[in-house]
């Protein structure tokens, strides 16, 4: 069973409670920003652009890390 990202309980330090599995997670600052963007319904392309505006990161690194991070969320069982 998947957990809707909108159902996650987040605090501003990246602590996340998944009410479907009863598990807790720790996001780092970048992870938290990305999950919040996903919660607002932004697309992957929009997030990629937003990341480069916000952080000192080049497109390749951002794309690689974003894809890796989405995979990770999928493995956990979270979906947008």
């Amino acid at each position: 069973m998947k957990t809707q990202l909108s159902d996650l309980l987040l605090n501003d330090r990246g602590f996340a409670f998944d009410p479907v599995r009863g598990e807790t997670y720790q996001l780092n600052t970048t992870g938290l920003v990305l999950v919040k963007m996903l919660q607002t319904g932004m697309t992957e392309a929009q997030i990629l652009e937003a990341m480069q505006e916000k952080y000192e990161v080049d497109e390749n690194t951002a794309r690689r890390d974003l894809e890796g991070f989405f995979d990770e969320l999928e493995t956990i069982g979270w979906k947008a």
Binding site: A16, Q26, L27, T30, G31, L34, F69, I76
Partner: peptide, 24 residues
Amino acid sequence: SRLPYTRPTVQRLNAGPVNPFRLG
């Protein structure tokens, strides 16, 4: 100016030993 970047991560916490606010 842009912020320094760190790669996004998410880590499942095991009950007990880890205090998420003090990962350091």
